[in-house]
Design a protein around this nucleic acid. Structure first.
Lengths: 268, 268
DNA sequence: CGGACGTTTGCATGTTGTTGCACGTTTTTA
DNA sequence: TAAAAACGTGCAACAACATGCAAACGTCCG
């Protein structure tokens, strides 16, 4: 029997593009059905299955009978992330802390880098620290000598601190000398970025409530952007980078009016 | 007789997705009924039974006649209870946790006894926990499976949590099923007491925001008073005491309408 | 221009997974 | 104790799956 000729994809859609769209549909609905995808893209179910198999091999979806689901969310990143990169982050934190002066009020975002900064803050400098991260609050309580204010609200487990409307509202009623918004990404042209919408809004509120903003960024966060903008670069007064940070990148930020501070080399 | 043809799932739901939804329903309600699931997903009860059997094999549910229940709470790992809490507080916490039902919202005050309770709470019971103590919030975040809300405000270092006007105002906007106000002292005639004025006001706000109050008290707190009254005894529905608590004292509270729960004897 | 090569695709084939039903057993209830 | 409900198991039907293969298409050279 004559086999149906294999025609070129009528919609002109490329295989890789199709996979991206499958992924988008998966993330939108939480699940995809092979038969439905076959109809939507006008290809055989075999091709769809091949796509799903490939995506599953990359860990981007979980293959199940009849289609695919979102992969089981890795629920344990925070505990593991803590203590990671400790030597490098310690040097960053030491440099960041040198910007703090006695009796100032600090606004410290959640995050492992910021936890390192909190751990490096000088005791007996009469500092007041406002934070949305219970981990950082507890850390400062244990060290004693700090006045600690907690930002309330719903805690996002993946962030490790409170975000959302209630948290933003509380920050609006406060005023700080310095703030440390955790950076997900920072770029000369487009400023500061966050991964999550709520997170970005909260960071923006932090910056608005502070006289100066200090962004502490590991190398992998420099020159890249994420999905949600926090603020223009003009809202950032200080940038603390690792010793290994690219020289051209550093001068690029400096020419845009940001004071760039380079950490000492890690001793490891 | 012609067997009814095995048709494709009409609702387009994937088998594995169905299992996930069953699990979600189980964690939401604490129980599921096979017949109801059969109707909801438009599959035979046989398939539902197969799903439940499979989930039970993974320890994700407990199979019972007619449906399934949440698995028995995982006993607290030895690592956590070693040294952290005394054996007496552990027994108190276990008794206190037995009053908690799936999907409830809890209001937990700061304090070491309450930290023991938080550590003993069953995971995957869909609990929402509101607390003013960063230590308890962090503890629950690390254990995963809890929705955590933080009460913001100034942290009192000697208490280990937020108190004061801002914290009270936030509690007023919340509603909980159960609250655990840390007890400084409790007396039949004069009710619940606190050492600090701000602390007492906050505990009072907690009780006002909850349907029921559970006071967990070590022996040294029974029958004594402190300086600031929190609430009359009529606002306390449950009292959890140690195994060693005086019998006369227990019956005295019981005759005043308080349900007295006696913890098991400590094993050591 | 044309042939070799790799990629993508649909189809054929055999295998695996899922489902509903029949039947006998166990558990609950009246 | 008896009836009813729920349960487990084996079975057959059907859907989904993996694999191998050949056709169609694009690209890279000669």
């Amino acid at each position: 029997m004559a086999r149906q000729p294999v025609i070129a994809p009528d919609s002109g859609i490329l295989p890789e593009e199709r996979q991206q769209r499958i992924l988008a549909a998966l993330r939108h609905d939480g699940r995809v059905v092979a038969a439905e995808l076959s109809a939507r893209f006008a290809v055989s179910e075999d091709s769809i299955r091949r796509d799903l198999r490939e995506l599953a091999a990359q860990g981007l979806c979980k293959r199940v009978y009849g289609g695919a689901l979102l992969p089981a969310a890795t629920p344990t990143p925070l505990k593991q992330r803590r203590g990671e990169h400790s030597a490098r982050k310690l040097m960053l934190a030491r440099k960041a802390v040198s910007l703090v002066r006695p009796r100032q009020t600090l606004l410290i975002d959640a995050g492992t880098t910021n936890a390192a900064i909190a751990a490096a803050l000088p005791m007996e400098a009469g500092l007041t620290v406002i934070t949305n991260a219970p981990h950082i609050a507890q850390l400062l309580l244990d060290r004693e000598g700090f006045a600690v204010l907690l930002i309330g609200g719903r805690i996002d487990a993946s962030i490790g601190g409170t975000v959302g409307a209630q948290a933003v509202e509380q920050v609006r009623r406060l005023r700080a000398d310095l703030c440390f918004p955790g950076a997900c990404a920072i770029d000369v042209a487009h400023g500061l970025w966050g991964f999550d919408s709520e997170e970005a809004l909260f960071k923006r509120a932090m910056i608005d409530a502070s006289d100066e903003a200090v962004v502490v960024a590991t190398d992998d966060k420099l020159g890249v952007v994420a999905t949600h903008q926090v603020a223009e670069l003009s809202r950032v007064q200080h940038l603390v980078v690792e010793h290994s940070a690219d020289r051209a990148t550093r001068s690029a930020f400096a020419t845009h009016g940001v004071a760039v501070h380079r950490a000492e080399a890690a001793a490891d």
